[in-house]
Design a protein around this nucleic acid. Structure first.
Length: 447
RNA sequence: GUGGUUAUAGCUCAGUUGGUUAGAGCGCCAGAUUGUGGUUCUGGAGGCCGCCGGUUCAAAUCCGGUUAGCCACCCCA
């Protein structure tokens, strides 16, 4: 009926929200599995918090501009509620609430979606995943250095060969500004400085004069220092001179020096960790070492893992001081990068083996083959219909199965199965008793 | 939030100064081949031309609005 057609609901997703098809979801879960295992290997423990919080818990920290981006509404009980827009503010509330029973230092990871009502753009959505890890309750530089280790392991495990972790320290920046007599403009200046890569020196200088209200000479002085170039040792020596007498600046330099000494001991490829005095990160709350990570083959997409040290996470919620350090993997950006680099696999099946069905009268036998394989830890799908084998092979090929098991009347009579390797086209006849061993061997990583 | 731009089959797109039955490639389904995938050949299904309104004898085509995507700003706790 034509009436019915007009009554149908149009299938569509909300602006800025996305569906994920199996091939995309496989890639996402693979990345999440890696992040989870790296985090756990350092002792970070998983937590979760609600998607919805009291609006007052989430709002008011980032100013009006960011409050506008928060999804907020009144619930059925007339409560003023909001959806979390990052994982850091919920962590602050969480830490304030449970620090007594958790004790410090406390290390947690949190992999979960967040929501922001901002205008969608390339790589920016209204619902996206964050993969945070933080160590709270310690001032020790050791935690800062390990943050760097975590980032390094993360990228190595993902299989990226070329990447650079850029490091700086807010204390160094503040020390430099203090020496220039620009201390009270720190926030504005750093926000401009953070754009250096994107818009260039001249534009940053102009913006500092126009929007922050400092002199052109002051802007130039700041930029000269921020653009110090060289090996970390050379830059640190340069900073020593510039920061002499600034207590905060010297503290920052010492932290960096200790950090780079640890890096030297790691034996990583040259240039993996660089010192860049121009990076500031947009966030106001960082107070110490800060990190961002660029891909060697795709630097233009920006940082895919960023973070830093903050003095006091939870002062909105508790009098107890909770310093910490952590970082966050930008999952969506990382996936976009892997895709662009042609590094995502195409399989849309999570199981490597397909048991084809030849004879509808033997359904139970096929299902038992599947069961046996799964009990041996081999993911197996049993094709649900006795369609012709050509169709089933085509299905296996398209979904990316590694192996197909084929068994008809002849095989059952002989107690043999055909096992076909879809990747190289070879096929072997295998005794039923040897099936598991044969398939395990074909699937073993050494093959 | 500001400006620009786009919207036609599942996907990528073509569609003449407005004109009669809206096309292609890929994909999907089926057959050639009821015991073997990627190749090939044949056939088929699938469209309120994003949505609403206007101009016109006539609109996928022109105009207004709206929704969504993309790009540049703004912002990014």
């Amino acid at each position: 009926m034509s009436d019915k057609k007009t009554q149908r609901i149009k299938p569509q997703t909300l602006r800025g929200f996305r569906d994920f098809l199996p091939d995309q979801m496989m890639a996402r879960e693979h990345l999440i599995d890696i992040a989870r295992s790296v985090y756990r290997s350092y002792g970070f423990a998983p937590i979760d918090t609600p998607a919805l919080e009291y609006a007052e818990v989430l709002l008011g920290k980032g100013g009006e501009e960011s409050d506008k981006q928060v999804f907020r509404f009144t619930d059925q009980g007339d409560r003023d509620v909001a959806m979390r827009f990052d994982l850091t503010v919920p962590l602050a509330r969480f830490a304030a609430q449970y620090v007594q029973e958790l004790g410090v230092p406390f290390r947690r990871y949190h992999i979960a979606p967040v929501w922001r009502g901002e205008r969608p753009a390339r790589g920016r959505f209204r619902e996206f995943m964050q993969c945070d890890f933080d160590t709270i309750g310690t001032m020790s530089n050791s935690a800062d250095i390990e943050t760097l280790f975590v980032i390094n392991d993360l990228f190595e495990k993902i299989g990226i060969e070329r990447f650079t972790i850029r490091v700086n320290n807010r204390k160094v920046l503040n020390g430099l500004l203090e020496k220039c007599g620009l201390g009270e403009h720190a926030v504005g200046i750093l926000r401009c400085l953070d754009k250096l890569d994107k818009i260039g020196r001249d534009a940053v200088a102009a913006e500092m004069v126009e929007r922050v209200g400092i002199t052109a000479a002051g802007a130039s002085q700041v930029l000269d220092m921020a653009q110090l170039k060289g090996t970390p040792d050379e830059i640190l020596r340069g900073l020593d001179g510039m920061l002499a007498g600034s207590q905060i600046g010297e503290t920052g330099v010492n932290d960096l020096r200790e950090l780079f000494a640890s890096v030297d001991a790691c034996g990583w490829p040259a240039g993996r960790v660089s010192l860049d005095v121009s990076i500031a990160r947009g966030l106001d709350y960082y107070t110490g070492t800060i990190y961002e990570t660029l891909l060697g083959d795709l630097p233009e997409i920006g940082s895919v893992c960023s973070g830093g040290r903050y003095d006091n996470l939870a002062d909105l919620f508790t009098a107890q001081q909770l310093p910490g350090v952590g970082a966050s993997l930008g999952l969506d950006r990382m996936l976009a990068a892997l895709e662009e680099l042609g590094r995502t696999q195409k399989a849309t099946t999570p199981a490597p083996v397909l048991v084809t069905m030849f004879d509808a009268g033997r359904v139970s036998d096929y299902l038992q083959i599947g069961r046996r394989l799964r009990q041996a830890g081999i993911g197996t799908e049993v094709y649900p219909e006795a369609k012709n084998i050509g169709k089933q092979m085509k299905y296996a090929d398209r979904k990316g199965f590694r192996l197909a098991v084929i068994a008809g009347g002849d095989e059952f009579a002989a107690g043999q199965f055909q096992v076909k390797d879809l990747q190289n086209g070879t096929q072997a006849s295998v005794a039923a008793a040897d099936l598991i061993a044969h398939i395990s061997a074909l699937l073993s990583p050494s093959k």
